[in-house]
Write a protein that binds this DNA or RNA. Structure first.
Length: 184
DNA sequence: CGAACGATTAGCT
DNA sequence: GCTAATCGTTCGA
């Protein structure tokens, strides 16, 4: 995908990304779960304006925003919308297709369903680190390739947030065995 | 400067 | 289902 493909509002990009291929340095698979966030969204890191942590969200679209979650996990987002709008898409789960051995080694588990089913697990399996923050998604080590969607998209409330629970900006590939959680 | 709180996960009941 | 782990970021005094 090209940077211009990320110009749309985050909820549109989040939906469009379901089924796309995401590979980081040869390791990755098919995206099966995403969540959208934007500047006017109380649950978003960008809600209170630019800070040292979230500056990548206010930069050019088509780049990575990497943040530390609960002091433990590294999570990957795609910056969306027009530059400065503070919108992004959290990549929550994917179906592992490339580099399975590397993923198993990084994760320390064998079960393919536990490799990338959740934003923290996905970050660990793909080797996401803070030096990728702000990096272009159309350059090494990233590969993001849009493909024909293998099935219908379902949506529902986002996970793990306390605000704006009524906003249904979580998207998933219906019936996928690699979702972090079932959709209601 | 102190305190509260996570866009989570793993492990135990 | 419930909770501990774990620490950087953010906000209030």
């Amino acid at each position: 995908m090209k940077p211009g493909d990320f110009l749309a509002p985050s909820q549109e990009v989040a939906c469009a990304l379901i089924g796309a291929m995401l590979v980081v340095d040869g390791v990755g698979g098919r995206i099966v779960e995403t969540e959208a966030y934007d500047r006017l969204d109380p649950a978003s890191h960008s809600f209170s304006g630019p800070t040292p942590r979230n500056q990548a969200m206010f930069g050019p679209p088509g780049r990575a925003y990497v943040y530390r979650s609960y002091g433990i996990h590294w999570c990957l987002n795609f910056v969306c919308g027009e530059e400065g709008h503070g919108a992004g898409v959290l990549i929550r789960a994917l179906e592992p297709l490339q580099g399975l051995d590397v993923m198993r080694e990084r994760r320390g588990v064998e079960d393919v369903r536990l490799l990338c089913s959740g934003p923290g697990r996905l970050g660990q399996a793909l080797g996401i680190t803070p030096d990728l923050n702000g990096k272009r998604l159309d350059r090494f080590p990233f590969q993001v390739v849009s493909t024909a969607r293998p099935g219908p998209v379902v949506k529902g409330p986002r996970i793990g947030i306390s605000k704006a629970k009524e906003v249904h900006w979580r998207f998933g590939l219906q019936g996928s065995a690699f979702l972090s959680r079932r959709f209601a």
